[in-house]
Design a protein around this nucleic acid. Structure first.
Lengths: 210, 210
DNA sequence: GAAATAATGAGACTATAGTCTCATAATAAG
DNA sequence: CTTATTATGAGACTATAGTCTCATTATTTC
């Protein structure tokens, strides 16, 4: 029989021809990632061809082009929050936010074409519970950056600040800068950075005066 | 000859059969808007059928499905900046920003399904000069709100503030609140509003201390 | 090595976006 | 009314996403 070679939902079945399947899967994801870096949405044909695999096989491993693109590895990964603040004892909250904003926005721009596509696909249909949720890198990064001042704030203040900061960074902020403001990456980073600092400053100032 | 009936780029040619063309165009846009409100992306076939027009005619008026969807009228229109600040002499910049943020976010949530689709389409492919640009309501609204304090700021300060505010409102901010933060409309408006006020306050405070 | 099993390739098939051509219907001008 | 002009409808055509079937190839097992 033709059959599916380990459709995502199936159990591992680790005894039988696992390496071959893992290699095919990896080849597809790598080919997709390579093509995505060009900024043009690759078709299933192109990806399959680049992976030296037939189109039918590609569909055996991924139920749709979208699923493949969503799993394609990012060119530059988001920095690990732990690691970003691990080396030094920097406790100035503005400096820490600065670093987080900078790291995330650089990552976003480095993966701009792919992130745009991922967002586009996730918006194409109304949220469904069975659909894989989109990754969320920014919340962890923001919380890590605010860690030193968390206890100085009420829960309401902290939550309010976290939410506002989430609006200033990540894929969506990049989109606004590209499509609406039409400014380059450097100016975009500048804008996010200034706003983030200002919100932290404002929060702490309000705390002191209260 | 078959011919195009006033392709967007052509000159008005206002003498010859203009009403017929305007009516067809309006019918297409209205049909698209009606279908979009269901939250599902309509196909050109569906729109043309709903507009009682052939598919070929639809393509004569709009170069692509995307172009049609981008021009489709929103269910609740964004408030006219002039009108929003016309009636009273409110000059407190924070109050004005408050009003602008509130108005735009209410509009965004009222048109959430359609705006999500519009954004999705505009992200699906890399920006191309021949592709219809997306609408931009927020910039005008922000500038109108900041009008009373514009002269108190340097151009750099003003531009910086405008850019930062653009990150806090509009479709993308709504997306972040829905998908990343997963908060309801009221909490989202609250977040945008507080952040916008804080940035205005911070800008003016920095001005005074300088 | 031979048999059973699983992955793959080739290709037919459907659906929708978009293009193009030609015939027809509606309108304006004489 | 007649004629030229213009919008429209019908349908053929290409391209790509996605599905499905079947033969072939590669791997495992005995």
């Amino acid at each position: 029989m033709a059959g599916r070679p380990e459709t995502p939902g199936r159990r591992p079945a680790r005894g039988r021809r696992e390496n071959q399947r893992l290699r095919t899967r990896k080849d597809l994801l790598q080919a997709a990632a390579r093509l995505l870096e060009t900024g043009v949405t690759p078709g299933m044909d192109e990806i399959a061809e680049a992976a030296l695999v037939s189109r039918a096989t590609a569909y055996r491993y991924f139920p749709s082009l979208e699923a493949l693109l969503l799993e394609a590895p990012l060119q530059a990964e988001a920095p690990d929050p732990e690691q970003l603040f691990a080396d030094d004892g920097e406790s100035d909250p503005e400096a820490r936010i600065d670093r987080a904003v900078d790291a995330l926005q650089r990552m976003a721009y480095a993966n701009a074409p792919q992130l745009r596509l991922m967002l586009s696909h996730s918006l194409a249909r109304p949220a469904r519970s069975d659909r894989p949720r989109r990754q969320n890198r920014r919340t962890q990064l923001i919380e890590a950056a605010l860690e030193p001042i968390r206890l100085q704030l009420t829960q309401a203040e902290y939550r309010r600040l976290c939410r506002a900061l989430a609006l200033l960074i990540g894929t969506e902020a990049m989109i606004v800068c590209q499509e609406v403001l039409q400014i380059d990456e450097r100016a975009a980073r500048e804008a996010s950075r200034w706003a983030a600092r200002a919100l932290v400053r404002e929060t702490l100032a309000g705390r002191r005066h209260a």
